[in-house]
Amino acid sequence: MRKKIVAGNWKMNTTPSQAIDLIEKLKPLVKNDDVEVIFCVPYVSLMLAVDAVKDTKIGIGAQNFYFEESGAYTGEISASMLKDIGVKYVIIGHSERRQYFNETDEIVNKKLLKAFEYEITPIVCCGETLEQREAGVTIDHITTQIKNAFRNVSDDLAKKAIIAYEPIWAIGTGVVATSDQAEEVCASIRACISEIYDKETAEIISILYGGSVSSANVKELFKKHNIDGGLVGGVSLKPEFGDVVNYK
C-alpha cells in the first residue's frame, strides 16, 4: 500500500528567520508516522531548514533548480548544489513556473532526468487550465504532459518519482476540484504510467492532488484510491497544515 505524502509548497514566502520559526511551530503538529511530510521552502532557507528538521522524519525540498551541471547561468541553482546541502526533494514543472517563466515539457523532462542523476526525489507537476477543462481536453492534456516529462526515464527511476496533479484553476483560488474530479484525473495519470511502463510501476508511483487543499476537504480527497496525498500551498504556512497531515 502506498504511503500518504503531504508536501507543503511555501512558494515565495518567509524570510530565513521566519522559515525557521514556522518549522519550529509546525514540527510538533505534523507527527504522523503514516504520512511522509515535506517542506518545500525558498532557496535562501534550504540549509537552515535541513538543519532544523535534522532529528525528525520531515524532508526538505526545493521549489526549482536548473538542469545544467554548472556554468554561466546567473541566478540559477544546480541539482548538485541541492544534493550537497541535504535537500531530498524538488518540485518540477509547477504551473507557476510554466506560466511565469515559460517552462516547457522539454525543460521539465531535462530537470527530471537531472534530479534522478543526483538521487533527489522529483515532485513532477501537471495540470490543466479552466479553458482546457471546459473544452473537455483535460485528460489528453495531462497525459501528454506526463509522457513528455518521463521521456527516457527508466521504469526503476519512474517508481521513485512523485507526481502532483494540480488543476490550475484551483491553485490559490479557494476553488477545489471535487474528489471525483481529482480521482478521475489521478486515475488517468496512473493509467498513463501503466501504458508507458507497466502496471507494477503504476501501482508503486505516488500521485498527489494539489489545489486549495485544506483541513475541510482533505479527508474526502485522501480516501480516493488514486490520490496518495497532497501538494499543499497556502495552508502549508499555517498551523492548519498539521490538520491536513493528521487527517484521519
Score class of each variant (00 low, 15 high):
13 N>M: 12
115 A>K: 06
152 N>L: 09
149 A>V: 02
85 I>S: 09
98 R>N: 06
127 G>F: 07
229 G>M: 01
15 T>K: 05
247 Y>I: 02
195 E>R: 01
205 I>Y: 11
49 A>Y: 08
203 E>T: 01
173 T>P: 07
247 Y>M: 00
139 I>Y: 03
23 I>G: 02
175 V>C: 00
135 A>Q: 12
213 V>P: 03
77 I>L: 11
169 W>Q: 03
18 Q>F: 00
192 C>Q: 15
91 I>R: 07
239 P>W: 02
41 V>Q: 07
95 S>D: 05
175 V>I: 14
66 Y>D: 15
122 P>T: 07
25 K>T: 12
159 K>D: 04
201 T>G: 04
185 V>Q: 06
83 K>M: 09
147 K>W: 03
232 V>C: 12
95 S>T: 03
242 G>A: 07
167 P>W: 08
103 E>W: 01
233 G>M: 06
39 F>M: 10
100 Y>R: 00
238 K>F: 01
191 A>I: 01
188 S>M: 13
138 T>L: 08
39 F>K: 08
73 Y>S: 00
66 Y>H: 15
121 T>H: 04
102 N>S: 12
203 E>S: 10
100 Y>L: 14
18 Q>S: 05
36 E>V: 08
208 L>S: 10
14 T>S: 09
59 G>F: 14
78 S>M: 07
219 K>W: 00
207 I>L: 13
232 V>T: 11
194 S>Y: 01
219 K>L: 03
26 L>N: 05
28 P>F: 07
140 D>I: 03
11 K>S: 09
22 L>C: 02
61 G>M: 10
207 I>K: 12
161 A>T: 10
145 Q>W: 02
150 F>Y: 14
205 I>K: 07
137 V>T: 14
138 T>W: 09
198 D>Q: 09
33 D>I: 00
117 E>I: 01
236 S>D: 13
207 I>E: 11
193 I>D: 05
241 F>G: 08
191 A>E: 15
101 F>W: 11
119 E>Y: 11
168 I>G: 05
185 V>I: 14
195 E>V: 00
225 H>V: 13
65 F>L: 09
92 I>H: 04
8 G>K: 05
73 Y>V: 00
2 R>Q: 12
80 S>I: 11
87 V>G: 07
145 Q>I: 02
173 T>C: 05
172 G>H: 11
136 G>F: 05
152 N>Y: 11
16 P>Y: 08
210 G>S: 11
208 L>T: 10
236 S>T: 09
62 A>F: 05
204 I>T: 14
25 K>G: 01
26 L>A: 01
81 M>Y: 10
63 Q>M: 08
114 K>N: 08
42 P>V: 12
15 T>R: 02
129 T>R: 07
191 A>C: 03
98 R>K: 14
127 G>R: 02
231 L>G: 04
140 D>N: 12
70 S>F: 12
121 T>V: 15
80 S>R: 10
167 P>C: 06
80 S>W: 00
61 G>W: 10
164 A>P: 04
100 Y>P: 00
9 N>I: 12
194 S>H: 13
163 I>E: 03
103 E>F: 03
149 A>L: 01
112 L>N: 13
72 A>E: 09
25 K>H: 11
115 A>G: 06
68 E>W: 06
137 V>A: 00
7 A>N: 12
236 S>G: 10
19 A>N: 12
13 N>K: 10
10 W>M: 08
109 N>Q: 12
47 M>L: 15
19 A>E: 06
182 A>M: 11
38 I>C: 08
215 S>G: 15
61 G>L: 09
187 A>D: 08
